[in-house]
Design a protein around this nucleic acid. Structure first.
Length: 197
DNA sequence: AAACGGGTCAACCGCGAGTTC
DNA sequence: AGAACTCGCGGTTGACCCGTT
């Protein structure tokens, strides 16, 4: 079932929010032909969208394994740790959070983390803010994780490859050091940290 | 009930890297 | 070799939602 655009109108590209019908067309096409080669996929599927738009819609929304909303404390901890290591390498960070997209992680960082940096009147890249993360935010997250799952988190400090689905904390062996460092006991004083979840 | 403001998130844009011809 | 095309990434925007006044 191939769609060859004939008129100017048919070739005009759509933009903005995707409709349920468009989603269905894209999902059906990918189910039959697989993903990739997005520009020709868009044409052949009969979608008046750019290949870019189709790729984004599939990766961030329609993919069967995509998870949205409710970023867990474990995932937050992992994001903070990985971001401190790699900076704004969202797609790389996303590789360690199965089902999460780079877009969602980026949004989380901008709406939650940057917001708190702003409230503290410092830059997210400043030493001051990094200290706050290490000494306040991360210990709070660790406490929350331990409170909800006993000590299993700390005990899980084994090495696992990225994309493991047993929980994101398994992905980075060194994370155990962050979680278990003596200095990580809470010093309190930054009450807004509690609202980050 | 309406207006307003802030937060969230889906989607677009620009650019650089990689690939194909 | 290099032009044209495609893909993927990170930054940004804008629409929508929800709480507050």
């Amino acid at each position: 079932m191939e769609f060859i655009p004939r008129s100017e109108e048919e070739m005009e590209l759509r933009r903005g929010a995707w409709t349920a019908e468009e989603d269905l067309v894209l999902m059906n096409y990918i189910a039959l032909h697989g993903e990739g080669r997005w520009s020709s996929l868009a044409r052949r599927a009969g979608l008046r969208r750019t290949g870019k738009s189709c790729r984004l819609r599939w990766l961030n929304y329609l993919r069967p394994d995509v998870r949205r909303g409710n970023i867990t404390p474990e995932e937050q901890l992992l994001i903070l740790e990985l971001h401190s290591r790699w900076g704004n390498r969202w797609s790389k960070i996303a590789q360690y959070l199965p089902g999460r997209t780079d877009n969602e992680i980026k949004n989380y960082w901008r709406t939650r983390v940057q917001k708190h940096a702003k409230h503290l009147h410092c830059d997210v890249h400043s030493k001051q803010f990094k200290d706050v993360l290490r000494h306040l935010w991360i210990p709070r997250l660790v406490e929350r994780i331990q409170a909800t799952s006993g000590d299993s988190v700390v005990a899980s400090a084994g090495a696992e490859a990225p994309t493991t689905c047993d929980g994101p904390m398994n992905a980075i062996p060194e994370l155990a050091q962050v979680k278990m460092s003596p200095e990580s006991s809470s010093t309190g004083g930054w009450s807004s940290v509690d609202s980050l979840g």
